[in-house]
Computed example of a mutant assay.
Amino acid sequence: MIYFDNSATTRPYKEALDSFLTVSSEYFGNPSSLHSMGGQAEKLLSQAREQVAKLLKVKAAEIYFTSGGTESNNIAIKGAVIMNRNKGRHIITSSVEHASVHAAMEQLGQEGFEITYLPVNENGRIRVEDVEKAIRKDTILISIMQVNNEVGTVQPIKEIGEMLKNHPAILFHVDTVQGIGKVPLSLYNSNVDLCSLSAHKFHGLKGTGALFIREGARLAPLFSGGNQERMMRSGTENVAGAVAMAKALRMTMDKSDSGTRRMKKIQTILRTGLREIEGVVIHTPIENSAPHIVNFSLNGMKSEVFIHALEQQGVFVSTTSACSSKRKSPSKTLLAMGIPESLAESAIRISLSFENTEEEAKTAILAMKNTANQLRKVMN
């Protein structure tokens, strides 16, 4: 099996699974309980928070555990605008955000907030100048993803953050779910106020994530209850998930340099091989792109048919993002990039992890060539 759908989810590290099992079976106390078992769980939770903070080079008090990227994005966006709605009701985002951000924006639009959706160029990248031009006196939040989950375009986060130093009242949220461990990001140096991440994108477990909230930034909590996570996210904490997440993040960061170099080599092999297949159009840009994503279309061929045929040869890829792959509509990211609808409807995404190899890439390209040729014969 060759698994090339890592942007949807990664295989958990064995060490992360072991940590989860150990904590779940031996330290299962509620961290809010007063007895010693609760104290042990609380200590493990605090240690996990400190480890995540150290790896992100921020303060432990700025890390809040969540159930994943979608919840982190919703807390950041909705919490920010609810808390600051008296200061203004204008939000800026891009036209190529993840579904959890886009849907949150649509919901806020229905509540009377005004949303500016910035366009992207043919490479899927926004311009810092466009961000600055969109800022108004009543702008309270800017939300931009670091790495696009469909085509891998890296947005100019540091440059936007630098520009926003002239607008200190505006909160800056970054979705780094696809970038963590693969594309460097200094939260402090980039002037980021809020940042979302999800454990299962870097070999942790599904259902665990985190939100960085810069010290001094104020959000309204979305959940009511026992005031866990320093009143930001009520609900009994997933201690085992947090510990496993900290373990997975540490292992990912340790492998980051060597793993990224390997993925770049694999990406080159994939690009070279894809260009040799008739009808292939590669959408992922060469510059300002993450090392783990290659998005392409097979002209005149339905992506679902190609994916299922490829699966028969043991190669697993995807269409758009996992959150919208079962819908029949074309990729909104590709449409925003100016890609014709016919090509956007046939888009395929290959996404890598540190565990993939060059040999897998060569084998996958051969399988793609054979699959494309066989399907074209049937179509003709």
Rank of each mutant, 00 (worst) to 15 (best):
D254E: 14
S324L: 11
R218P: 05
G259C: 01
S324Q: 13
L343I: 06
A347N: 14
G273P: 05
G300R: 05
I269H: 07
I286P: 10
N295K: 13
G338D: 03
E345P: 08
P221M: 05
E237M: 11
S321T: 09
N238R: 13
R327F: 15
S331C: 15
G279Q: 04
E304I: 02
T260N: 10
P330V: 10
K264H: 14
R233P: 08
V305A: 13
I269E: 09
K328M: 14
G235A: 12
R233I: 09
G273I: 01
M337D: 07
A240G: 06
P340N: 00
A344F: 06
I286C: 15
S256L: 03
P340E: 02
A344H: 11
M337C: 11
T252R: 03
M245T: 00
P291L: 09
Q313R: 10
G225D: 11
V305Q: 11
K332S: 14
T252S: 05
V305T: 14
G259F: 01
G338Y: 04
I266T: 10
Q313I: 06
E229L: 03
S256H: 03
P285T: 10
S297V: 01
A322M: 09
A290P: 00
L274N: 07
D254L: 12
R250M: 08
T252Q: 08
H308G: 08
E278K: 10
V243T: 02
I286W: 14
S331E: 11
E237G: 07
I266W: 09
S318I: 06
K247H: 12
M301P: 00
D257Y: 09
P340F: 02
E345V: 08
F306K: 00
A246D: 02
M231P: 11
V294R: 05
E229P: 07
I277H: 04
S289F: 03
R233K: 15
R250Q: 14
I269K: 05
V305K: 10
G259S: 02
I307Q: 03
R327M: 13
P221F: 01
V305Y: 14
N299R: 11
P291F: 04
N238P: 03
D254G: 07
N299F: 08
P330C: 12
K247P: 00
C323W: 14
E287K: 13
K328L: 11
